[in-house]
Design a protein around this nucleic acid. Structure first.
Length: 256
DNA sequence: ATGCCCTACTTGGTAGGA
């Protein structure tokens, strides 16, 4: 069983790339981020025709998350991260697929930092901590997948010294990610490949992909109840080289 | 230090991304 996460950077603008990748990869479950489409503009028919059920939480222009699955229909558990009723940004949804609780998240970028956007990122992180702790205490198989907008360590950036003042790599951000993982989660790709240079994002600027000037910011956190099913994981890096592609590549895990 | 590119949208210049 393959579960993937993919920040598409506009689900409609990216539709040919997304459909081609779905056809070639045949993932079982996909978490999408940055739909950049209102609820009624999600390409449901095209996704269905590709063989996938979909649930999604859209928003005009920005953000937006979706969970796709083939076979079993995703059973939606929640949309929106608990803890702030006034937060109307579409950044989190959760569903059960094949007995696994899947959380699909798009954590705020937080730049420029410091400032109100960075404060929002850290407050969002606080709410994620609380909810993730609740999920761990359920003692069920959980996969939290998405664009965390966090460079966890210096190994995860092409030139980490360039990122120390950036919201993706500031000490507060790294500390927040570490304290989340330290609740008892397993960073799946880092667990499998502790020393490998792995990137999931390459800037559109400066020929970053050609230079492999990337970042690892899309992550899978696994609850202990599912770790023994983890077989392998990877990044479909070649997709980042396709025409009209996202600045992120799809990332996936394989479970037995 | 800035722009470099790409997205959506009040479709022509902005805002946001990372």
């Amino acid at each position: 069983m393959i579960i993937a996460t993919y920040n598409v950077n506009g689900v409609n603008g990216r539709l040919p790339v997304l459909l081609r990748w779905l056809q070639e990869k045949q993932p079982d479950v996909v978490c999408l981020q940055e739909l950049k489409a209102p609820q009624e503009k999600f390409p449901e028919k095209e996704i269905n025709d590709a063989g996938y059920h979909a649930i999604w939480h859209g928003q005009k222009s920005w953000n937006g998350v979706a969970i796709l699955s083939r076979g079993a229909e995703p059973q939606e558990v929640r949309r929106g991260l608990p803890g702030n009723d006034e937060d109307d940004q579409s950044r989190y949804m959760e569903a059960i697929v094949n007995g696994i609780l899947i959380g699909c998240l798009y954590l705020p970028n937080g730049n420029p930092s410091p400032g109100p956007k960075f404060d929002y990122k850290l407050r969002w992180f606080d709410r994620l901590h609380a909810h993730a702790d609740y999920l761990l205490k359920e003692n069920v198989p959980v996969v939290l997948a998405g664009d965390y907008n966090v460079i966890p360590t210096g190994l995860d950036a092409y030139k980490p010294e360039r990122w120390v003042e950036d919201a993706l790599f500031r000490p507060e951000t790294r500390a927040a990610y570490k304290s989340l993982v330290d609740q008892g989660w397993i960073d799946a790709l880092r667990h499998l490949y502790p020393d490998e240079v792995i990137y999931t994002f390459w800037d559109y600027f400066r020929k970053a992909y050609d230079r492999n000037a990337g970042l690892r910011i899309d992550h899978f956190l696994l609850s202990p109840q599912i770790l023994d099913r983890l077989v392998t994981a990877g990044v479909d890096k070649d997709v980042r080289g396709w025409e009209k592609t996202s600045d992120h590549a799809p990332v996936w895990i394989e479970l037995r």
